[in-house]
Design a binder for these strands. Structure first.
Length: 605
RNA sequence: GCGCCCGUAGCUCAGUUGGAUAGAGCAUGGGAUUUCUAAUCCCAGGGUCACAGGUUCGAGUCCUGUCGGGCGUACCA
């Protein structure tokens, strides 16, 4: 049951009827008006409010309250809503959900595997491109936002009924491999490589990059890189040459590349396993390499691209602005070339309606140009969306780095989150009387809470702005954090365990009888639970998982208030059944909601 | 220089696409546990929504300008 949809349908009918009666202009039943039905900001105004009368008043040439009254006269509230009272203020039409209806919605949702969420009416084919790490470097904190946000969007859109394909567009072919190849040939440590291949490749990458970039402030802190830079003045060019040789098919470089790939893949897979993230496809940049030449040829032939200063580019923003380069003067291809080849391949093989690119906001200009180029090329019949997000900053407000200036490794980050969570679990256990939790369970809870906290911090704050990474805040275990909601679920579970209540028979019983809510705290919780479908609508509208986190936080808050004030197991009769229904549905909505965010939910804490 | 994003409580952030008295958490002060997990709940104080205009029944939200910050800006990804 989707209350807001239902209400919009009711208003749409009322607007048509009022228009037919001549109370309001003929074109008053358009969609943008029925969208002016939304939840109230304050319970004293009822549950939902419609603001259609005010904009219509001008068109109708009548006072807004008179228009509101005309709409109310035509409104058939049906089985779910009470008939509206007279308009309020400038012309708000406020509606309240019938108490019996709310009871029925909760009972039905509790017994429904979809928890009352209807599938979308017209499913889309959606490709989501996210994570996309550079496999030559160890994953760091910068990768987590794309990975976590993309994974959550994939789960949510699939649950809504879309046909979702996820694809990890690995950076496995770029200049970074030139650095590794050069480093391998000049600076490798064979025993270190045998011992831990990715650590050694990572070391080579960092060393060569610093030496090649030759930034004085970096070299000052790294004598080895400084020495290397001094010994090889043409290093930056040599590195590019290694990359060029790889791209041209040089046998030695290809063989080395092929031997590096499996260890790099194993490294990132370990992280994905721990994050419970998986992809339908992992078609990295190297996969598109065979097509790049023909892509450039085709774009040249169609006169979409042309030569400029020795390179080949597409002038998406006119002659004066920098073009999108697709081939360098030295003949090498760029990531724009790969991105265009990727769009063509996906359109040919997957035929998506939409492609979401979950990538750092710093690349917005690049994507704008790539999307414009794709449209000029003839691939305009698809929604290409850059789902951008801000940079992760340290508590000093600067990009998140270790004290030595290196980026923080993702695995170390996860380890620290889990370690901190374990402290909290252990402390809480020690303070609690009664049956002690096995150590393995404490460890599993810490894993769920620690990693959940890190993921949730990213998801709940999904805006274009940068955000400040703070373990202390995300593991606060209060406020809008994963642990707060995980804890609410654990309290639900506690009730069913303690009461020895089996939920399946309860749900069967709920299907038969009627339940009702008398206490305002019960009602507030019930209404909040009924709004789950609306929260998921909002996630898709803007590709913002934070709409779901905000919703879940309100559910958990409403439940905590309810839980604190009203006994469940000690209640009797209908009251007990109604409260058990609320507990059951709260547990399911929170659990399912967190799982849609990729967050694990323990049964006790 | 040009382009994109941002500026909301002491701090970290929300703000349902233009709606009613701008909300949370942290921090500060007060209160709640013989009762289902106190990792909780309840109450209080705290705001020129950077600034100035404009649009309209109504602006934190849209438009213009100013100030401040981040990012990008031709052969890295």
């Amino acid at each position: 049951m989707h209350l807001r949809h239902e209400l919009r349908r009711i208003f749409s009918a009322a607007l048509s009827a009022a228009a037919a009666a001549g109370d309001i202009p003929d074109d008053s039943d358009d969609l943008s008006l029925t969208e002016m039905v939304r939840a109230t900001t304050d319970a004293k105004f009822g549950d939902y409010t419609a603001t259609v009368a005010m904009p219509l008043a001008k068109r109708a040439g009548k006072p807004p309250r008179q228009v509101a009254e005309a709409i109310i006269a035509k409104l058939e509230p049906g089985e779910w809503f009470d008939a509206p009272q007279a308009p309020v203020g400038p012309g708000f039409i406020n509606l309240t959900v019938k108490n019996e209806a709310l009871g029925r919605i909760v009972a039905e949702a509790a017994a429904d595997p979809r928890l009352g969420v209807p599938p979308v009416e017209t499913p889309s084919r959606i490709v989501i491109d996210y994570s996309s790490p550079n496999v030559a470097k160890p994953m760091h904190v910068g990768h987590i936002r794309s990975t976590v946000i993309g994974d959550a969007l994939a789960r949510i859109l699939a649950f809504r009924g879309h046909e979702v394909t996820t694809d990890n567009h690995l950076g496995d072919w770029g200049t970074q491999f030139g650095m590794i190849l050069w480093g391998w040939k000049h600076c490798r440590n064979d025993t270190a490589y045998a011992d831990n291949p990715t650590a050694e490749l990572g070391r080579l990458y960092r060393l060569v990059r610093k030496a090649a970039d030759a930034k004085p402030e970096e070299l000052a802190n790294d004598p080895e890189a400084a020495e290397l830079a001094a010994a090889h003045p043409t290093l930056a060019r040599d590195v590019l040459q290694e990359t060029a040789r790889l791209h041209e098919g040089d046998e030695e470089n290809r063989t080395l590349w092929a031997s590096f790939m499996p260890v790099c893949q194993a490294e990132i897979d370990r992280v994905y396993t721990r994050l419970h993230v998986h992809f339908d496809h992992t078609l990295g940049e190297s996969f598109y390499q065979p097509f790049l030449g023909e892509v450039v040829e085709e774009l040249l032939a169609k006169e979409i691209a042309r030569e400029s200063r020795g390179a080949i580019g597409i002038f998406t923003d006119g002659e004066e602005k920098p073009p999108l380069l697709i081939r360098k003067a030295d003949g090498a291809f760029l990531y724009a070339t790969t991105d265009l080849a990727t769009i063509r391949w996906r359109m040919q093989h997957w035929k998506p309606d939409r492609v979401l690119y979950v990538v750092d906001h710093r690349q917005s200009q690049h994507f704008r140009q790539v999307f414009a180029a794709a449209e000029a090329w003839g691939y305009g019949d698809v929604d290409l969306v850059h789902v951008a997000f801000g940079t992760v900053l340290g508590e000093d407000g600067r990009p998140f780095k270790t004290r030595a200036g290196d980026t923080v490794g993702l695995e170390a980050l996860l380890d620290e989150g889990v370690a901190r969570a374990l402290e909290v679990v252990a402390t809480s256990q020690a303070a609690r009387a009664g049956d002690a939790m096995p150590v393995e369970e404490q460890q599993a809870i810490a894993e769920a809470v620690g990693i959940g906290a890190i993921k949730y911090a990213d998801l709940s704050q999904n805006r274009a702005t940068d955000y400040v990474f703070s373990f202390d805040k995300m593991l606060e275990l209060k406020g809008n954090t994963a642990a707060y909601m995980q804890y609410a679920v654990a309290r639900v579970e506690g009730i069913f365990t303690k009461g020895g209540i089996d939920r399946e028979p309860l749900r069967e019983q709920l299907k038969q009888g009627e339940i009702s809510f008398s206490d305002p705290r019960e009602r507030a919780l019930a209404l909040q639970l009924a709004r789950f479908p609306e929260a998921l609508d909002e996630v898709e509208a803007d590709y913002r998982p934070s709409s779901l986190t905000a919703y879940l936080y309100e559910v958990a808050g409403a439940y905590s208030t309810f839980y604190d004030a009203l006994p469940v197991l000690k209640a009797e009769g209908h009251e007990r059944t109604a409260r058990l229904a609320l507990c059951d549905l709260t547990g399911q909505v929170l659990r399912h909601g967190l799982e849609l965010l990729g967050i694990t939910v323990p049964t006790r804490m």
